[in-house]
Design a protein around this nucleic acid. Structure first.
Length: 826
RNA sequence: GCCGAAGUGGCGGAAUUGGCAGACGCACUUGACUCAAAAUCAAGCGUAGUAGCCCUACGUGCCGGUUCGAGUCCGGCCUUCGGCACCA
């Protein structure tokens, strides 16, 4: 056996062995409990970065641990392969996106294999493969048939850099999520998925997700943005029209002094036509339309408005109130019109003050003392209604119920729940994505491509120098087609799908990756799903994780799956940072996984990453920390080598009743370690403390070795065998090598996870802390299992205790068995 | 403004149910081995007082509370990070 630990010699050997043995292949097996562990699949950018290595190392520990515990484990990997970078590469280097992408996939797969990850490569999927996007298209049509995919003209987010539209979720602080350039609004006809139909379920079912971090659930909750209110109309007699408003403060309807429309509201045109200042109003509207979305939705933005000249009737009071247009009203939310209650809404207060609109107090919160003259801003807290007709005197929460009931009775309105969530814009004016399987025919209109004609293939050899026009629209062979319905000349949809559609169902395809007749077999999906443990970055808290939940619910409604939620437990790993910042090329603080692996080996890289911080927290990269991990593996190598001769031929059996004290202690430490590592990995995902426990075990073995303490060879074998199995999920190569050298011929990764024996952990003697008035004063060693009164007696007999409490009165004595005695004195 | 997470040595972090604060590792110091160095093995390592040991006091962002006992529970703040925010 080699004296020195040389990872370069052993890692590739075992990687080859695992591949040849097809070691990580999984089949459906109803005799065994299943476990599905999944890491978010990567975009094939070309090279793995440390964030990937962290993500996969975490998943790999879980997968290998569960296998050893006897689970039938699904642990797949694939490629989120459509998207802009491939097209950018095509523009820049003249290489076709598919070629560029497949080359990157090959390279990244090789890099993953060098980390020693236990994937079932037979299940690999790539979203850009026709046999994958065929089913993405099939699912699009399913949504279409269910009325969940529709086309409409709307003011949508447009990125000039990427030359495409974006979903709301892809606009971060007014900028494009991918290229960070400013997003503008464009009036375009686009495809949408009706995610808003599922808003209530997406919100309510969050409570099922006990294994998700609170912060992710809160982010989704904020994003969905539920509010309870009422909707009702103001008549506009002059035009015989109604203005419908939505409010959460229908208890303040008697305080309405004006009504405001969004500049884009459909009634605006009618109300202002022919007005003497029509031109002025139109120029105001134009100005607001040119204000950025970000500015207009910021509470700091100056509120501006203009009077339309029209009046509306408050249905509660019969009063006439002026109708205004203002920049702070958003056409997409609620009804695009709001009632103005300056006394009880901060925005309305500012607006009314600026334009000298009247204010009316309708909530009293000071026992009848509240008055407008004393107010310096709106009051939006609770109180009792005043100046509110028949509702006067009710407290405002009761008033809401009463007023909503009155609206229903009078048939002029009703209670309503509103969501902030908007429909998902799914079409993209890009080439490298799944084509939307729709054909436009002069005669038949919008025609879905029949299932047996899928996939709608992406054409090869496309030109990318077309500027702002989608490259696909330039390919005549693609665009011109015959109508599947009437056979006449037709045009193909040239938009492709948002890549987030492709990634919204990949976890289902893994359960049945080569199916050629359906996207997946329901019974297979139902066996493996939901994913037991999903692992990925927080950046997908809303985007991918919300979309995937939406897809799962639609598929459940369609009868294709029998579960409600795709991911039972979610672990959001922290970033890998160096010198206080996320690793990035522009900051020049990138550490390449390949360099680390060639210098120290994959086991060291994995061990360091898992040891340096708990998985959810950010991890500060430290070259010295890596050295430390390498040093530890060297220690393991040497100590196991040292005992090789003693252990390899030894019999497992030994007499447990005749152990020396040193042997008993070593055995206890082993079983305490087994217990801790099992709990830390299995229940808490605290890999850092699991590894530190293994380090302590190794330190204990060294203590025995250095003092040449004689240890029964059977016990030594138990210790070394368990040590290798405990370390195997973290450092799969070195443990495999040592296992073969010292223990046996089979793979350590096929071995059973060690079980701790409670009997081995029991101590004969325990150390008890003696406190006086809560301060530690002494420690004593007593036989284990003393009763509290025996313990108290022993404690009070201690010389030091007697000295310290001399002349004082004992108030009481608290005894915690096996732990401490606290003597309270005065 | 609303919501969420966090704050512990020189550093990464541990303390899982209220019970010895600082496990494990890094860095540092020292010893052994060596002609020497590296590697390795071992020991020390919160702050202050003390030449030093024993020991004593202080110490988990701040202020207060509950408790025999608080990093942990309660009340009130501060700071950092993240999400939402003119959503009516």
């Amino acid at each position: 056996m080699n004296e020195r630990y040389a990872p370069q010699d052993i890692e590739s050997k075992w990687q080859k062995y695992w591949t040849e043995q097809n070691s990580f292949h999984t089949e459906l097996n109803r005799q065994r409990p299943e476990y599905y562990v999944l890491e978010m699949f990567p975009y094939p950018s070309g090279n793995l970065h440390m964030g990937h290595v962290r993500n996969y190392s975490i998943g790999d520990v879980v997968a290998r641990f569960k296998v050893m515990q006897g689970y039938n484990v699904l642990h797949p990997m694939g490629w989120d392969a459509f998207g802009m970078p491939a097209e950018n590469a095509a523009i820049k280097h003249g290489v076709q996106p598919s070629e560029w992408t497949w080359k990157n996939i090959d390279n990244m797969r090789r890099q993953q294999q060098e980390i020693g990850l236990s994937y079932d490569w037979n299940r690999e999927v790539a979203t850009c493969h026709p046999e994958y996007y065929r089913w993405t298209q099939w699912l699009f049509l399913l949504f279409y048939q269910r009325g969940l995919a529709y086309k409409k003209k709307a003011a949508v987010n447009w990125c000039d850099q990427c030359n495409t539209v974006l979903a709301n979720e892809q606009v971060i602080d007014g900028n494009c999520w991918r290229c960070d350039s400013i997003v503008i609004k464009k009036e375009l006809e686009q495809w949408f998925f009706k995610i808003t139909d599922y808003a209530d379920r997406l919100l309510n079912d969050l409570s099922e997700l006990k294994g998700w971090p609170d912060r992710v659930k809160t982010m989704q909750e904020n994003w969905i943005g539920r509010s309870e209110g009422a909707e009702f109309s103001f008549n506009v007699p002059e035009f015989n029209e109604k203005i419908s408003v939505y409010t959460t403060r229908h208890d303040t309807v008697f305080g309405v002094t004006y009504v405001v429309l969004a500049p884009e509201h459909q009634l605006v045109d009618k109300l202002i036509s022919g007005k003497p200042n029509e031109a002025e109003i139109r120029s105001f509207i134009e100005k607001v339309r040119n204000q950025s979305e970000l500015a207009r939705t910021s509470s700091e933005f100056e509120k501006e408005g203009i009077f339309t000249g029209a009046y509306a009737i408050n249905p509660f009071t019969g009063e006439q109130v002026p109708v205004w247009i203002a920049n702070y009203v958003l056409v997409e939310y609620g009804t695009g019109a709001v009632m103005g209650v300056p006394a009880h809404d901060e925005r309305d207060w500012l607006f009314a003050s600026k334009y000298q609109l009247p204010k009316r107090l309708v909530i009293d919160w000071q026992n009848g003392e509240s008055c407008l003259e004393n107010m310096t801003g709106a009051y939006d807290g609770p109180g009792d209604l005043v100046n509110s007709g028949q509702f006067t005197g009710l407290n405002n929460s009761r008033a809401k119920t009463a007023i909503a009931a009155w609206l229903e009775e009078q048939k002029i309105g009703n209670s309503r729940i509103n969501y902030r969530l908007r429909d998902w814009l799914v079409s993209r004016q890009r080439y490298w994505g799944a084509p939307i399987p729709i054909v436009y025919c002069e005669k038949c209109g919008v025609v879905p491509v029949p299932e047996d004609q899928l996939p709608v293939m992406l054409p090869d050899n496309v030109r990318f120098d077309t500027g702002s026009v989608s490259p696909l629209a330039q390919v005549n062979d693609f665009v011109n087609c015959s109508c599947p319905s009437c056979g006449g000349a037709a045009r193909r949809e040239t938009d492709t799908m948002d890549t987030f559609i492709c990634s919204s169902w990949y976890y289902l395809r893994y359960t049945d990756p080569r199916n050629t007749s359906v996207p997946f077999d329901s019974s297979k999906a139902n066996y493996w799903m939901p994913v037991d443990q999903y692992i990925g970055g927080i950046e997908h808290a809303i985007l991918h994780l919300l979309y995937s939940r939406f897809f799962t619910k639609v598929l459940k409604d369609a009868g294709l799956v029998n579960f409600n939620e795709p991911f039972k437990n979610l672990l959001t790993q922290g970033m890998v940072i160096k010198d206080g910042a996320k690793m990035s090329k522009s900051k020049g603080n990138v550490v390449s996984p390949e360099d680390i692996i060639s210098k120290y080996g994959a086991d060291t890289a994995r061990l360091f990453i898992l040891f340096a911080a708990p998985p959810e927290r950010d991890l500060e990269w430290s070259e010295q920390g890596v050295e430390g991990a390498y040093r530890f593996l060297g220690r393991v190598w040497r100590v196991v080598s040292h005992y090789q001769a003693a252990v390899s031929g030894a019999d497992e059996a030994y007499d447990r009743s005749s152990l020396t004290k040193a042997e008993k202690d070593l055995r206890r430490i082993l079983h305490v370690t087994i217990k801790k590592v099992t709990e830390d990995v299995g229940n808490r995902f605290n890999f850092n403390t699991a590894i530190s426990a293994i380090m302590e075990l190794v330190n204990a073995i060294y203590a025995v070795k250095d003092q040449n303490t004689p240890i029964a060879s059977g016990l030594l074998r138990e210790v070394i065998s368990a040590l290798l199995r405990l370390l195997a999920p973290f450092a799969p190569h070195i443990t495999e090598e040592l296992w073969h050298q010292v223990i046996g011929s089979g793979s350590v990764h096929k071995e059973q996870w060690p079980a701790f024996e409670a009997e081995a952990i029991v101590l004969d003697e325990v150390e008890i802390v003696l406190q006086i008035n809560g301060k530690v004063r002494d420690k004593i060693v007593v036989p284990a299992g003393l009763t509290p009164s025996e313990l108290e007696k022993t404690a009070l007999e201690q010389e030091k205790v007697a000295e310290l409490i001399a002349g004082k009165q004992i108030v009481k004595v608290i005894c915690v068995p096996q732990k401490l005695v606290n003597i309270v004195v005065k």
